[in-house]
């Protein structure tokens, strides 16, 4: 995971040094804020500013960033579709059978899409600037998460590539034995269950073995010292101030320079 992150990183920024707890709590606050925002103008500026922060401060190569942004926009557009096509409203723009596009539903659809985008931009900023190990160490040290949960998560995440590899192997085996096995074991419901069972049973076996070994090595609860130390630093304050400024700016610009006349998407 870390290698992959280093491959796409161009430079490191101060956000790398912010404590993961700060970033995750800010993420939860952002979620609440975005759900409570009903003015599409303000939300538009917030999403644009978050995109700018992602581009400038994530430190990821622009090539990868472009792909990520494209995906977000495409998925966002898809998720806005049902509201645009079926939402209720008074001013009709287009009507075809069950599809009924109104001005209100269009605004609302775009609003829901911008909500998703704002959260996605912030979310990928966190992902691109945080090492997974630090998240769990920080949860243990700063928030007192029980070590058995933290170490289980860290160990399990290392198994994901093995699971993926196993799946690829399974696919290749099936390709080789295609003439010998019945088609229903490969595709459809039966095929799905067969695949899941193979992956699950192997993973449970591996997890059990690893679990016994880790319990023997006392990766359990109890007083312990930590290999990595995480702490709160002035960078956390800087990060919080930056987020406050962004939110404040979007509120002010949203109410001063309105792009559309609608101030409430409801």
């Amino acid at each position: 995971m870390r290698d992959m992150l280093e491959k796409i990183k161009r430079r490191s920024t101060f956000i790398d040094k912010v404590n993961p707890i700060t970033k995750i709590s800010t993420g939860l606050l952002m979620f609440i804020l975005v759900v409570l925002m009903h003015d599409p103008n303000q939300l538009f500026y917030l999403s644009v500013l978050m995109m700018a922060v992602l581009i400038i401060l994530s430190g990821v190569r622009l090539k990868y960033l472009a792909i990520v942004l494209m995906l977000f926009l495409v998925f966002g557009a898809f998720s806005a579709m049902y509201m645009v096509l079926y939402g209720a409203g008074a001013t009709t723009l287009f009507r075809f059978g069950l599809i009924h596009i109104t001005e209100e539903s269009l605004v609302r659809g775009v609003h829901v899409m911008m909500r998703g985008l704002t959260l996605s931009f912030f979310g990928s900023l966190v992902i691109f600037t945080t090492r997974l190990t630090d998240v769990f160490y920080s949860l243990m040290i700063q928030l007192g998460l029980k070590p058995k949960f933290a170490y289980s998560f860290m160990a399990a995440i290392r198994m994901v590539p093995i699971i993926a590899g196993e799946y690829m192997m399974l696919r290749q085996t099936r390709k080789v034995r295609k003439p010998l096995i019945h088609k229903r074991h490969v595709s459809g419901l039966k095929g799905f269950i067969t695949t899941v069972i193979t992956l699950l049973s192997q993973s449970i076996r591996r997890a059990y073995r690893l679990g016994v070994a880790m319990e023997a090595k006392q990766f359990d609860d109890g007083p312990r010292s930590y290999y990595y130390e995480t702490r709160f630093t002035p960078y956390d304050i800087l990060f919080l101030v930056m987020m406050l400024v962004i939110v404040f700016t979007s509120f002010v610009t949203g109410s001063t320079f309105s792009l559309i006349g609608v101030t409430d998407a409801r």
């Binding site: 289980s152 399990a156 449970i204 679990g211």
Partner: peptide, 9 residues
């Protein structure tokens, strides 16, 4: 810990 690990996996 083993239970947690199996669950997470």
């Amino acid at each position: 810990l083993t239970d947690v690990l199996i669950t997470v996996v």
